[in-house]
Design a protein around this nucleic acid. Structure first.
Lengths: 342, 342
DNA sequence: GAATCGTTTCAAACCGCTTTGGATGAGGCA
DNA sequence: TGCCTCATCCAAAGCGGTTTGAAACGATTC
């Protein structure tokens, strides 16, 4: 059932039917209702391909997922972000198209999207310092929103980020207030912008209390269980081990907790752990698990918001770049306590 | 730059240019090369929207992701499958469109996809017993491939699955051969088809050795770290605890391992654990982690293959439904050993 | 030399919708 | 009555490709 057939069934022109369905004012209310009813009755849905060609809009948003050579972006955090963004797209009748490409073909992928016109805009994931994608997208004129920020990029662009610096600063202060002085940072990969900011927050908090940062208490690696375990184990085995640990994610923290326990220490008493909690939907902190003390910010919600921002940019490309900084909340759980007396 | 402009720049008709670029035989080789060169030089890419309307094909594949009410499908295993499928789509110039919809609107989502024509086919995820989506998709005539199978569905349909029954049967036999007789099953949710088959394999292996299944050694829950921990803890705390555990996933197993260790037992000696390993790319068994004994089958590879199958179904809808059963390999790691002498 | 054929090219229709620029007719007003 | 407005509807022209059917032309065949 297409528009022409529906129109002739109603004894109307395609023009009128189209207008009736799209809410244009120049059509009689009675006719509109008749059209609406017929459309529903015959289960008519306009052909997306035709709409897209006629309107010149793709009604779709792209997410490029680079794979292979280096860091794997296909992780639980990414999945939750996608789920959040997808909710927004569905509500607004946009499609979400995921492009999985080898990471040396990322630029080509963006250029292709622009010239083939299968998306109206893109979300940029996991920005790094001086991220090359930002000038690229500006150059080719494809609307975009960055999830995170890119230190070093001076020209304004559209982004949505969590205040990672502040979150880790507060987390560090929290441990300091509990009397901890040997505080470790089990960070994500520090070519990622968010990890840089987290380290900055951590260092700022230490510096404010006049505590010298100890490089042996700072690690940077993938946010996996094992990387967390490995980093924490090494630190705990060394002389003058930490009594507090800042972990970059729930998953890293699971590894850190294992390290604490297998070192024969009690997690939450001998060693306090505070995590950054992305509020992953398949792994809620405190729902089942004894709750971790955490700086919490839902990555799924970030996905929803970033998508909304992008749709807005697509609708109003002329506006000045929007920027939004979300604050993480500090959740007090059971994984932290006063620094043990030596 | 569009086709018409390119054609006039070349002094040719759009027809000829289109044919030259698409490899049709009725065009002079010299002209073809001239066209190709010009296309490259002007960075011409045909407009996807126009191609889609003209050919009547969407050149896109849908994945419906139900959310909210019940089981969360947005998990690491799903993410890896998507990544694999995405690779296949990219190679074949197909788009992957993800639809995130509330799970009570799944049917509407599929019907919409068909009538709006924005995809040529779909992959069905996480099938359950007598899954309603299979007859639905057949009824509306949308090509599909199921990742997994649906026990109870009699009419043939296209699927790709791992031999879950056989995998768990072998895993159970492996533990039996090591002398274990108290073997626990920490299963996924048993309304999921794969979980049903795994339990069957487990029960078959026990029965073949004349061992009565003990319901207190069988649990069924989400495949999260905590669910694994909770189930294993309870079993280990009970009278006559298990000496072997079959875990549904790497993540469940991490929980089970924690339960073993916090019960003061040695993992791999006092309690053997054997897992089903989906070979997740962000969490490789044995890459960093001491390797778990496992039945391994890459879910990412399954994604690649299922996508290939779907593209084939789309290209040849008249063929009989393809079905493919992948066997998991048995990897001997360090998480299993002889049953301890009582 | 005319008929036939194969190669190469093109004009025009088409995909299914949106949107522009009228056309039609009823009602209002002088 | 004549003119203007407004509400309502429609024909036709896009959107940017693909595809059908035919034309042009040199080469081959009889």
């Amino acid at each position: 059932m297409n528009l022409k057939e529906l129109a002739s069934k109603l004894g109307l022109s395609p023009t009128t039917v189209s207008r009736a369905l799209n809410g244009y004012p120049e059509v009689n209310e009675a006719t509109r209702e008749r059209v609406m009813a017929a459309a529903k009755r015959h289960n008519y849905h306009p052909n997306t391909r035709a709409i897209r060609l006629a309107t010149g809009r793709a009604m779709a948003v792209g997410h490029v997922i680079p794979i292979a050579t280096r860091h794997e972006i296909v992780n639980p955090i990414f999945a939750d972000f996608i789920a959040g963004a997808g909710e927004t797209y569905s509500r607004n009748d946009y499609d979400m198209v995921l492009s999985v490409v080898p990471d040396d073909q990322e630029e080509a992928a963006y250029r292709g999207m622009k010239s083939k016109g299968n998306v109206d805009g893109v979300i940029v994931h996991a920005p790094r310092m001086n991220d090359a994608r930002i000038p690229l997208l500006r150059e080719i004129g494809l609307p975009f929103v960055v999830h995170g920020r890119a230190t070093g990029t001076t020209e304004p662009y559209c982004w949505l980020d969590v205040n990672n610096r502040r979150a880790f600063q507060r987390a560090t202060e929290f441990l300091l207030d509990l009397g901890h002085t040997r505080i470790a940072l089990v960070n994500g990969l520090e070519y990622m912008d968010f990890a840089i900011r987290r380290r900055t927050g951590y260092l700022d908090a230490l510096a404010a209390r006049g505590i010298a940062a100890d490089p042996s208490l700072m690690s940077s690696d993938e946010m996996t269980e094992f990387a967390g375990y490995r980093a924490a184990s090494a630190m705990l085995a060394a002389a003058n081990p930490p009594t507090g640990i800042l972990a970059a994610s729930m998953i890293s923290a699971m590894g850190a907790r294992r390290a604490v326990e297998s070192a024969g220490l009690e997690f939450g008493r001998d060693v306090s752990i505070i995590i950054h909690d992305d509020d992953l939907s398949y792994m809620k902190n405190g729902e089942d698990v004894p709750i971790f003390t955490a700086t919490r910010s839902s990555v799924r919600e970030a996905g929803r918001l970033a998508a909304e921002m992008l749709l807005d940019v697509i609708a109003h490309p002329e506006n000045v770049p929007q920027q939004r900084l979300l604050e993480a909340e500090l959740i007090i759980g059971q994984s932290t306590g006063p620094a043990p007396r030596p």
